[in-house]
Amino acid sequence: MSAIAHHIPDAMMAAYASGNLPHPFAMVVATHVSLCVDCRAALGAHQTVGGVLLEQSDHVATSAGLKSDLMALLDEPVRPDPVYDRQGVYPGPVMEALKGKPPRWKKLGMGVKQCLLSEVDGGSTRLLYIPAGQAVPDHSHNGLELTLVLQGSFSDETGRFGIGDVEIADEDLEHTPIADAGEACICLAATDAPLRFNAFMPRLLQRFFRI
C-alpha cells in the first residue's frame, strides 16, 4: 500500500476525539484511523489534551441518588459488544457496521454498486464499488461528503486518492470521480445531505438509491 497522502483535518479529529462528530463521519474517521499511523497518533494527542482539560474543569454537583443508581447498574450483567477484525479490504469499523457479514451490494448501473450501512438524522454511510475506468456521475454537494478508499484508487478534479486516503468535499466542489485502472475501487462514503447530480437520470433515480 502506498503512503497515505490525504488525512483527517485537525478540527474534525478534535470533534471525533470529543465524541461530537456525527455518526456517518465518525465511522469514516474511525476507519481511516485504523489504517493511518499519523492520524492514530493525532487522535491520541487530542484524547490526551481532552483528559487534561477534563481534570482541570470545575467540579459539578451530582444528584443525591447518583451513587445508588450507578451501583445498581454495576450489579447488572454485562454483555460486551462483539469485536470485529479486518476481513479482506474491510477494516474493523466497517465489519462492525456489516455485523461481520459480507456487503450486500445493490446495483446502481454501469457496474457501480452500493451497500448502505447506516442512515442517521439525514446523514448516511455506504460502501461504493466502482469498476476500473468507470465514473461516478458529475455532482456537487448540499453538505459535506467524506470518501475513504479501501481498495484501488480514484481521481477527480482535485487529485488522486489511493488506499487510506480521504477526500473531503463540500458545497464548493463539483467533481466527477473516476476509478483508476487496475482493481475496482471500493470506498466508504459518508454524507450529511443528499448529493446534487447535474444529469437528469441520476437525479431521477436518486431517491430510489437514497444517495
Rank of each mutant, 00 (worst) to 15 (best):
S2A: 13
I4Y: 02
A5L: 10
H7W: 07
D10G: 05
M12Y: 04
M13Y: 01
M13L: 15
M13T: 03
A14E: 07
A15G: 04
Y16L: 05
L21R: 06
H23A: 13
H23Q: 15
P24L: 10
A26M: 09
A26N: 12
M27T: 14
V28M: 08
V29W: 02
T31F: 08
D38A: 13
D38M: 06
C39N: 02
R40W: 03
A41W: 03
A42Q: 12
L43I: 02
L43Y: 00
G44T: 02
Q47G: 12
V49G: 13
V49C: 14
G50V: 11
V52S: 05
D58E: 15
T62E: 14
T62M: 15
A64H: 09
A64R: 10
G65M: 14
G65Y: 11
K67Y: 12
L70H: 11
L73A: 09
D75C: 05
E76P: 01
P82K: 05
D85Q: 13
D85S: 15
R86P: 04
Q87S: 07
G88H: 06
G88C: 08
V89K: 06
P91M: 05
P93N: 06
M95V: 01
G100M: 01
R104Y: 03
K107E: 14
K107M: 09
L108D: 02
L108R: 06
L108C: 01
M110D: 15
V112C: 07
K113A: 09
L117H: 04
S118T: 11
E119K: 15
D121G: 01
G122A: 04
G123D: 01
T125M: 05
L127K: 02
L127A: 01
L127H: 00
I130K: 00
G133V: 01
G133I: 00
V136Q: 01
P137H: 03
P137D: 01
D138Y: 10
D138N: 15
D138M: 11
H141Y: 04
N142Q: 13
L144E: 05
L144P: 00
E145C: 06
E145F: 04
L146Q: 01
T147L: 09
Q151C: 08
Q151N: 09
F154G: 00
T158Q: 10
T158H: 10
G159M: 12
R160T: 14
D165I: 06
E167M: 12
E167D: 13
I168V: 10
D170R: 12
E171Q: 14
D172N: 13
D172S: 15
L173V: 14
T176P: 04
T176Q: 12
I178L: 13
I178G: 05
D180M: 09
G182M: 07
E183I: 05
A184H: 10
C187K: 00
T191C: 07
D192L: 01
A193R: 04
P194V: 02
L195R: 08
F197L: 09
F197K: 08
N198H: 15
P202V: 07
R203K: 14
R207I: 11
R207E: 11
F208A: 12
F209K: 00
